[in-house]
Nucleic acid binder design. Structure first.
Length: 780
RNA sequence: GGACCUAUAAGCUAGUGGCAAACUGACUCGUUUACACCGAGUAUUCGGCGGUUCGAUCCCGCCUAGGUCCACCA
């Protein structure tokens, strides 16, 4: 028999889809629109590991399912070429220091490099995987259109007084020299030293600190009000060593009695609590750290040293003065920049911020209006909101990104805003006068990348270019994403949607499967445990790879196992062979609906029930559940049982052949359609070869799931299969062939129930005769 | 410190308040007019402890292990 050549077929089918623009979105098409807010991949790598490929394929399967359920699917691809990853990639690849290049030139290089990678992604990854995007709807996050979306909503939020500029303590990365958002801070475990330092002149006290380098920023001392040891200190003035000035001792419940000596020094700023107390007790502001992470003039003779050197120098000085009493190692976790791992500092700068803290309650309500798949992922969203301590800092002191479209008057200091009609713009390229006559100094900063990403629904649906379309299609149907960015992408998108439109951005949120390596650890390039998708596809085929994807349950972790791909290979061969068999026996089939035999009716009823069950699973984003049902039915009910049952009727040209032929045709078509979203190539191949002329749809992927009209019931057919299985057991026990001739004894009631199926039973098990009596298999 | 997820056969996964299941692997047998990338069959099992119940793998509590998120971090 002809073997299935997956590579040849997949290439040919892919060309066919592209030539015929099978997946083109037609706004005039009938049916409710189902829109997907696709995660745009970072354009900073040429290929995907199996985890990423699985993630993208998972919701691509959903797109196909919805098409076949009759929805008009809006499926726009995107690329994220905005922000730090691209900036970093270009620096590394071209080995250039952006500080030494001109900013405009550098941006051009970023665009050029990311475009190259986008093309690789498009041709070699996404199209290769058979993804059914409408490529005419492609967007990128740095495009003028996307910039316009980001800048326009920025202006709108300023008008709504939801966006403000403030001189605030900000989370700061000294390496990248930029402000960070709370979501960009990650935990870093390290061992450090806890230093016991003596404060005071007459009355001496011991304070334990891990940040002696901030001594010159000390603006207060705190003890716990319930701590009897230090009660007498409250209200006293205490001398700060080396820098020789006095600060007041105050009491606050947040001080832990058991940590160190139970006495804390507050610096502006060492950590979150410092900021809290600074605000709560209106403490002085004494900044000792500059934007590069170096000590400034407030640190006196230590100015110019970086934090590490400063710490050493100050500790030595304290030692000399006999003020360093003790040092002990301490395991601590510090906040650090998610990109470079440098511990963050807190400095006061002027930044643009968006209100989040005052909307906590509303944001929780928004989260409740969205259907989360799986449900427990909402907990993460809720926890994040409850724990938020900062408004969202949206300005970044970076080179590459969407410019913040404002100027500051050099005379009156006012913020000069452009008109929405002028957007997108780069204030560095445009001169602007203030109303007072002063000159506008352009803003240098760019937006946090999430400012753009959080508006992927607006960008994908062309909010500003096609307002009518946007109005009709928003909110979107589905946001698919991974769980690690719930606190960023999901959160910021919901926030923006609330602030701008006062509604949810999408109805459903599906968290994809998280892939682990074979040992159960997260997969990544940096860990060196990544399995590359293109290699797996090369070794097996796209359909096989997608078969594996189809088996992953949404929202849970799954270790990668190559064994699973072998199962997919077998399935495809089986499907190919079953197709061959069916159409080999359908040459004289006339297509008319004949009078159906009982067992054929049973088969129709069975596929009807299977279709309904599988569709329900698909709708609930349970791809693995649907796949299991379909696969099980195809392999066992259809191939192992039904094909065997009707073989004799067909081979021997018996009466009822047309009935079997009709059912073979219909059931195989139903199965192909049900599994088509998961394995689009093999199903399209069989469809084009045998079904298209009769069915008429240009592609199986443009057809609807089969609606079977069976009118049958299952009872007798199930009994048939049960008896079949019992006879097979007897034959195996007796070590006889399945074709060995037998005489079968059956219960009178069962014979009556089987009715017209008796003849088929005799055929499939090669029973010479069937007698009434207790169940028995006699060999002749 | 808090929260969440997971724990089922050798491996990977379904599933249900009442005979525990598919696939891979192992073993036995069969098959050549779709398929040896096949068919039939066999063996092995619900992390531990307690509770609710006539009955718990499933519900509840505790524990253990693995994973994840968050908070703290002077």
């Amino acid at each position: 028999m002809n073997k299935y050549n997956s590579k040849e077929v997949e290439g040919r089918i892919r060309d066919f889809w592209e030539r015929e623009k099978i997946y083109k979105f037609n706004p005039k098409k009938k049916g409710e629109v189902y829109s997907i807010d696709t995660p745009p991949p970072y354009a900073s790598a040429g290929h995907l590991h199996v985890g990423h490929a699985l993630h993208y394929t998972q919701f691509e399967i959903i797109a196909r399912v919805r098409r076949m359920l009759g929805y008009n699917v809006y499926f726009a691809p995107g690329f994220d070429n905005n922000g730090l990853p691209t900036e970093k990639y270009v620096e590394e690849k071209l080995k250039i220091n952006k500080a030494k290049t001109n900013r405009t030139e550098f941006r051009k290089l970023c665009l050029k490099e990311s475009k190259k990678i986008e093309d690789i992604y498009k041709e070699k990854v996404l199209k290769k995987l058979g993804h059914s995007y409408d490529w005419d709807l492609l967007y990128t996050t740095i495009s003028p259109e996307a910039q316009k979306v980001a800048q326009t909503s920025f202006l709108k939020l300023i008008k709504k007084k939801e966006c403000y500029r403030a001189k605030e303590p900000t989370i700061w990365c000294p390496y990248h020299e930029t402000a960070l958002a709370q979501a960009e801070v990650e935990d870093l475990k390290r061992t450090t030293k806890l230093n016991y330092i003596e404060f005071g002149k007459d009355k001496k006290i011991l304070i334990a600190t891990t940040r002696p380098e901030l001594l010159s920023s000390c603006v207060g001392i705190f003890v716990n009000p319930a701590d009897k040891r230090h009660k007498s200190l409250i209200g006293k003035q205490i001398l700060v060593p080396i820098f020789n000035y006095e600060v007041e001792v105050r009491a606050d419940e947040k001080v832990e009695k058991d940590f160190g000596t139970g006495i804390v020094m507050v610096c502006t700023f060492g950590d979150n609590t410092d900021i809290e107390w600074y605000k709560k007790y209106k403490l002085d502001l004494k900044i000792s750290v500059d934007k590069k992470g170096k000590l400034n003039e407030n640190a006196g003779k230590f100015a110019g040293l970086d934090l590490k050197e400063g710490r050493q120098a100050i500790l030595e000085e304290l030692k000399k003065q006999g003020r360093l009493k003790k040092q002990e190692p301490l395991e601590q976790t510090v906040g650090s920049c998610w990109r470079c791992g440098t511990p963050v500092e807190y400095i006061v700068t002027e930044q643009w911020l968006i209100h989040t803290l005052k909307h906590k309650k509303k944001l929780l309500e928004m989260g409740n209006k969205i259907n989360w798949y799986p449900k427990f992922m909402k907990v993460r969203y809720n926890d994040w909101i409850k724990n938020l301590a900062w408004d969202w800092t949206i300005s970044r002191q970076r080179y590459y990104g969407v410019p913040i479209p404002v100027w500051y008057c050099d005379k009156c200091g006012k913020v000069i805003l452009p008109d929405e009609k002028e957007l997108p713009l780069d204030p560095l390229q445009i001169k602007r006068k203030c109303k007072c006559g002063g000159n506008g100094i352009p803003e240098q900063d760019v937006f946090d990348t999430w400012v753009t990403s959080s508006q992927s629904p607006e960008i994908a649906l062309r909010w500003l270019e096609k307002p009518e379309q946007y109005k009709k299609l928003a909110p979107m149907s589905l946001r698919p994403q991974s769980h690690d960015i719930i606190r960023t992408w999901a959160f910021y998108t919901i926030l923006k949607s609330y602030l701008l439109f006062n509604r949810i951005p999408w109805k459903d949120l599906m968290v994809g499967t998280f892939i682990l390596d074979e040992k159960g650890h997260g997969m990544s390039k940096s860990k060196g445990n990544a399995v590359w998708a293109d290699k797996m596809i090369e070794k097996y085929s796209v359909d096989v790879f997608r078969y594996w994807v189809g088996g992953a349950s949404v929202g849970s972790d799954l270790p990668f196992n190559e064994q699973d791909l072998i199962a997919g290979k077998r399935f495809i061969t089986k499907l190919h062979n079953a197709g061959n068999f069916v159409f080999m026996n359908l040459k004289d089939y006339n297509g008319k609906k004949p009078v159906l035999y009982a067992i054929d009716k049973w088969m129709l009823q069975k596929i009807k029930e299977i279709s309904e069950k599988a569709e329900k699973k698909y709708i609930k984003y349970n791809i693995a559940g649907a796949k299991r049902i379909i696969e099980n039915f195809f392999w066992h009910d259809f191939c192992d049982n039904y094909l065997e049952i009707v073989k004799t009727r067909i081979y021997q040209n018996k009466k009822g052949k047309e009935s079997a032929q009709y059912v073979l045709y219909k059931v195989l078509l139903s199965i192909l359609k049900l599994i088509a979203p998961i394995m689009p190539f093999i199903t399209e191949e069989i469809y084009q070869k045998h079904y298209r002329k009769i069915e008429g749809d240009k592609s199986i992927h443009l057809s609807l799931f089969e609606k079977i009209d069976s009118g049958g019931e299952l009872g007798a057919g199930d009994l048939f299969v049960e008896i079949l299985s019992k006879i097979r057991q007897e034959k195996t026990k007796a070590k006889k062939s399945m074709k060995s001739e037998i005489v079968l004894s059956l219960d009178k009631k069962d014979i009556k129930r089987l009715g017209g199926m008796i003849e088929d039973l005799k055929d499939v098990m090669n029973a010479k005769e069937i007698k009434e009596g207790e169940f028995e298999v006699e060999f002749v």
